[in-house]
Design a protein around this nucleic acid. Structure first.
Length: 106
DNA sequence: TGAATGACAACCC
DNA sequence: CGGGTTGCCATTC
């Protein structure tokens, strides 16, 4: 298992409810600036054994990629509001592990 | 071993 | 803003 994978998993697991992250964001934090695709691969591959909040991972456009799942509903259930375009306001809901506690304290 | 694929991203038109 | 193209990386056939 590569460090990238482990770190990515750690990051994903650290995403609190009602928050989302983009593939690229995770990839960079995990050490692979261009590993956005590996994150997606990682997700549907590892989510089987690991209990990862895969539904909190969306693309850079703030939209759901894997339509055909209940991802959207799951997020809405956690308090994420979708625009009429079916997108998420990243500026509001994107999770930033770097800053954390300071900003997100309500 | 080489080619194709993927729950993406950035860029260009 | 939408659609098409290119780039990057790891996995699978």
């Amino acid at each position: 298992m590569q460090p990238f994978t482990e770190r990515a998993i750690e990051i994903i697991k650290s995403i609190p409810p009602g928050r989302v992250m983009t593939y690229g964001q995770i990839a960079r934090l995990a050490g692979n600036p261009f590993g956005a695709r590996q994150v997606s691969w990682l997700l549907h591959s590892m989510s089987r054994v690991h209990k990862l909040p895969w539904h909190r991972i969306i693309n850079a456009k703030g939209e759901i990629s894997y339509t055909g799942s209940e991802q959207r509903e799951m997020l809405e259930m956690e308090g994420v509001i979708f625009t009429k375009n079916g997108k998420v306001d990243l500026h509001t809901y994107q999770w930033l592990p770097e800053l954390t506690r300071t900003l997100e304290e309500e």
